[in-house]
């Protein structure tokens, strides 16, 4: 084990995969000379040279699509899109091309492509630079979408993503880059398509991914100490495929669930989770599935407004208490309230 930041874990994984396989190359804006907008690729140009660490013009559609074509010929490009907001410029190449080419051509060529990109919010970057739109990609069959919440998961999932033969969107998060954790030495891989129960518990199932999975883990610990609650935490890790059995199995035991997500509530990731739980654990539910999600506004710049619009610890704690209250009421001997 080595202690390192989420940023370092990504960088080291890129480096070791590039050392392992000459077909792995990096493309993106400002990743070489500038060493990355968020310094993920620091030192890699010096180590691997401009052929494998390729600075691109500001042309998301062009270079993401070029990576699709390079992948069709068997390279394993890892594209950095500076933030997920700019991925919208490459939407056609991701959704209409990367995700379609394997199926639409009858399985004749795969597209082993990784798109690394951070989501975020809470950095006063205003409406166009603070979105969490991973849902757009998680909606699309043919795509795989993973969202690590810890340095160790970042390493294991990025390794899996690079070795996978399908297009994988690897969701990072601005708020996680400096977080630190223990990372196993040597090769580790996590299977794409599986969620993790990061904390077992009996009282309530708390579900998050990326930054919110880290928040969920911390809040569960805090509530264990402060209120003696035994909360089970699930980190989705993979948004597509979605590990439905793990979610449902947990809620069948706890009888209730809260989802915390940094995207908007309406049609969001939490909506899919709530629907899944209603499909698979209907008879076990003692309260509605509660979602804590961003207010439905383009995120404002002013700190007071931005803070109000984003899910806070207090919002989450409140939602947990309200859900547990509803459960307790329902489980009273006289049965459900009228």
């Amino acid at each position: 084990m080595t202690s390192m930041t989420y940023r370092e874990a990504i960088r080291q994984t890129l480096r070791s995969e590039m050392n392992r396989d000459n077909d792995v190359l990096l493309l993106g804006e400002e990743i070489g000379v500038f060493e990355g907008s968020y310094k993920i690729t620091q030192g890699l140009l010096a180590e691997f040279g401009p052929k494998r660490v390729r600075d691109t013009p500001i042309a998301e559609e062009g270079f993401t699509g070029a990576a699709v074509g390079a992948a069709m010929l068997g390279l394993r490009p890892v594209v950095e899109i500076m933030t997920i907001n700019f991925s919208l410029l490459a939407l056609d190449q991701i959704v209409n091309h990367a995700a379609k080419i394997y199926g639409m051509f009858g399985g004749q060529t795969s597209v082993p492509l990784v798109i690394r990109t951070p989501g975020g919010g809470g950095q006063q970057l205003g409406a166009t630079h603070s979105q969490n739109i991973e849902l757009y990609y998680a909606f699309v069959p043919g795509m795989k979408v993973v969202a690590p919440s810890t340095p160790a998961d970042a390493k294991a999932l990025l390794t899996a993503a690079i070795r996978d033969n399908d297009p994988v969107l690897f969701l990072e998060n601005l708020a996680l880059y400096n977080t630190r954790g223990e990372v196993p030495d040597g090769e580790i891989e996590i299977e794409i398509g599986r969620a993790a129960v990061t904390r077992p518990g009996r009282d309530l199932t708390l579900i998050g991914y990326s930054r919110t999975a880290a928040v969920a883990a911390r809040i569960a610990e805090e509530l264990s100490t402060s209120a003696g609650l035994d909360i089970e935490v699930i980190d989705l890790r993979s948004l597509r495929p979605l590990d439905r059995p793990t979610l449902v199995e947990s809620v069948r035991r706890t009888g209730c669930a809260v989802v915390v997500e940094d995207d908007w509530l309406t049609y969001g990731i939490g909506a899919e989770i709530a629907a899944t739980i209603s499909d698979g654990a209907f008879d076990h539910l003692d309260a509605p599935v509660r979602r804590v999600a961003m207010a439905e506004v383009p995120l404002p710049y002013a700190k007071s407004l931005e803070t109000a619009a984003l899910p806070s610890d207090a919002d989450l704690v409140e939602a947990i208490h309200q859900t547990l209250d509803a459960v307790a009421h329902r489980r009273l001997p006289q049965g459900p309230r009228p």
Binding site: A66, A70, H97, I101
Partner: peptide, 24 residues
Amino acid sequence: LLGGYGIVGGQLPPATGAALAIDY
């Protein structure tokens, strides 16, 4: 034949990337 593409212009970036792979 690496594909007919139904999205106008959609084939251009992948074709460019295929050329990149050849060069690589």
